[in-house]
């Protein structure tokens, strides 16, 4: 019997703390698969954030460092500047990256900091029980927008890839999804590219992954994926927003 599919080495052999059907698990696996394929687990330092993925230090086999809420890109910068040849990635949710950590995100990008950022957008604060996130959609009901997000009161969602694409130091800004096997394949390619960019010293690479939160959305895991397709993708279109080496640009062949 040939093994077609099994747990990647870089993913710890433990049960995750995520709710049933939460797609954090899929994204974790993709990051671990990429680490395996690039053979970088022993040289990688992952930064875990505050939020549902705060327990991620238990799930990745590489060295892991905990950052205060939103500060993962700053912590990653410190590690990368201390150890320029290591591989450093942050794993951050929407509240962490696009609300409390917007400043750190934007400036890490502006510096062309040679790190990889995995940004998980599920339009809600999951860990604290479902409050409005910076990416909560207009009309979306959360614990703190019980009548639905009203832009006149709570403003508009932050489109991270679109914003970062305007920054000179950004090498890769790509939005992907994990709602179907086809999209998961795309997501893995993007994540792999974000790590390869770092290895080839090309600059700040961010992959935004649209993800679900069945528990706080109040949907079954299957219905949650449907909501992702029906409501999230139209507002947060998938695609490559910027793909351009900042540093170490390859000579273009004629």
């Amino acid at each position: 019997m040939a093994v077609v599919f099994d747990k990647p080495h870089a993913l710890c052999d433990v049960a995750t703390t995520y709710c049933p059907g939460c797609t954090h698990g899929i994204i974790h696996r993709l990051v671990a698969e990429v680490m395996d394929e690039l053979g970088i687990e022993g040289n990688t330092i992952g930064i875990f954030p505050v939020g549902c993925s705060v327990m991620a230090y238990k799930f990745f086999e590489c060295d892991m460092v905990g950052a205060p809420h939103g500060r993962a890109p700053a912590v990653a910068t410190g590690i990368k500047r201390a150890l320029p040849d290591s591989v450093v990635f942050t794993y951050q949710g929407d509240g962490d990256l696009a609300a409390i950590g917007t400043c750190e995100t934007v400036h890490a990008a502006a510096r062309g900091e040679n790190i990889t950022v995995i940004f998980v957008n599920n339009t809600i604060y999951g860990m604290t029980g479902g409050q409005m996130a910076p990416t909560t959609l207009p009309g979306q009901v959360t614990q703190t927008t019980p009548y639905g997000r009203e832009p006149e009161i709570q403003g508009y969602p932050v489109k991270v890839c679109e914003m970062l694409a305007t920054i000179d130091g950004t090498a890769l800004a790509q939005r992907v999804s994990v709602d179907t096997p086809a999209h998961i394949r795309e997501a893995k390619k993007a994540i792999k590219k974000a790590f390869e960019n770092q290895i080839n010293k090309k600059g700040f690479s961010l992959v935004e992954v649209l993800s679900t939160c069945p528990t706080n959305w109040g949907l079954t895991p299957v219905d949650a994926l449907q909501r992702l397709r029906d409501e999230m993708i139209p507002y947060f279109p998938l695609g490559v927003y910027k793909d351009e080496a900042v540093w170490n640009k390859e000579e273009k062949a004629d």
């Binding site: 599919f5 747990k7 049960a15 998961i184």
Partner: peptide, 16 residues
Amino acid sequence: ALCAMMCPDCVIKVEK
């Protein structure tokens, strides 16, 4: 392996 790809908990091993 589509089942394994969608599994958030990496609990499915696929062989051939």
